[in-house]
């Protein structure tokens, strides 16, 4: 009896972390889309970068429940770091530069995490927002280093591993970004299905109980915030490397706000939300810019208001209605795609 129960427990506990066939399908579709539209590499690269950035926010918001309005701080540090490494020829190998840029953001994430874990939602909002504004002010102050509003001049990214040169169609950039996203996704997936990842969800659900079973709440939050900063830094560095640009707007509030929006569109707390949200968001943006080139911000705002008024959960239920119906028909079982993210009011 007990051994049976133990086996059951093991199977059920591992169930969450097992690869679902829909996940394989997802990545195959991503790759297929990449191969099918060679004329759209630039925008697809942008989506991948956004997806990585959103993955970073999902780790802290979807899993640990930390609301941030200043995630661009880490994106910006990664972007400038990659840019400066290239301009001054410090590290010419892009992958190495990428990692170094990510680590720079990690340091900032670790230092600021101590400020962020204190206090409630509102304080966190203000502190994260303040840190991003601070970074922007610093970048402006030291415009002799950062190039100010004009941005860094003379970024020239060398071939990856000295072999794959960045081409003008963005093919190298796309597959490079895809590879980086996939590797970091695998890492994030490992993290969230580990005991550590589960303890983050526990902290988000009930920090009081989490501490009362021996979970070092602050330490875990610091850890995941720091990891998320690394991810955001990598996203920023990818931005610089694939566009050869880095200017003050990498720190902008709109960047942080858009990020929250796209994660909300995709749904938080299951890792794919950021990826799907990035694609949907970017296409919406494209659509709005096509309708009203100058005033697309209005439509993005409207989307936000409507999402909140209708209710995020209801929208996801609508969006998942068709996929779930198909799943039920084909597989003859309960819906496989369910989102559960309840932020406490």
């Amino acid at each position: 009896m007990t051994t049976n129960a133990q086996t059951d427990v093991g199977i059920l506990a591992r169930q969450h972390g097992r690869w679902h066939w829909s996940e394989f399908a997802f990545w195959i579709v991503v790759l297929a889309v990449g191969l099918a539209f060679p004329s759209r590499y630039l925008i697809m690269t942008e989506i991948l970068r956004l997806a990585l950035f959103a993955l970073s926010l999902d780790l802290i918001l979807g899993y640990a429940g930390i609301v941030s309005l200043g995630h661009a701080a880490f994106f910006g540090v990664g972007a400038y770091c990659a840019g400066l490494l290239s301009v001054h020829g410090l590290i010419n190998e892009p992958v190495l530069a990428l990692i170094v840029a990510g680590l720079a953001a990690t340091v900032l994430g670790f230092v600021t995490s101590f400020l962020v874990i204190r206090g409630v939602d509102l304080t966190r909002l203000m502190v994260t927002l303040g840190i991003a504004l601070l970074m922007e002010a610093l970048a402006e102050r030291f415009s002799n280093i950062t190039g100010g509003t004009d941005g860094l001049q003379g970024i020239d990214i060398q071939p990856i591993f000295g072999v794959f040169a960045f081409d003008m169609f963005g093919k190298t950039g796309f597959f490079y970004s895809l590879a980086v996203l996939f590797v970091l996704f695998l890492l994030a997936r490992t993290i969230v299905h580990s005991p550590f990842g589960l303890s983050l969800r526990a902290i988000k659900n009930n920090p009081l109980r989490a501490a009362a079973v021996g979970i070092p709440v602050n330490k875990r939050l610091i850890a995941i915030y720091t990891v998320a900063a690394f991810y955001a830094g990598i996203a920023g560095a990818l931005f610089t490397q694939t566009t050869a640009l880095a200017s003050l707007d990498v720190f902008s509030f709109e960047r942080s706000a858009d990020l929250v929006l796209l994660l909300v569109i995709g749904g938080s707390g299951y890792l794919y939300g950021g990826l799907i949200g990035a694609a949907v968001f970017r296409m919406l943006q494209e659509l709005f810019q096509w309708i009203t080139p100058q005033y697309w911000m209005f439509w993005i705002g409207l989307v936000l208001v409507v999402i909140v008024m209708v209710g995020r959960h209801r929208i996801h239920a609508y969006a998942l209605w068709l996929p779930n119906l198909i799943l039920r028909q084909i597989a003859g079982r309960k819906a496989a795609v369910v989102l559960t993210d309840n932020e406490a009011p």
Binding site: L61, V67, L69, D121, L122, L125, A257, V260, L261, V264, I300, G301, L302, V303, L304, V305, I307, V308, M309, R312, E343, A344, P345
Partner: peptide, 13 residues
Amino acid sequence: RSHLDQVLFSIGL
């Protein structure tokens, strides 16, 4: 609603 919802709504506005 949660603060996150309120933030999203007012940013949208």
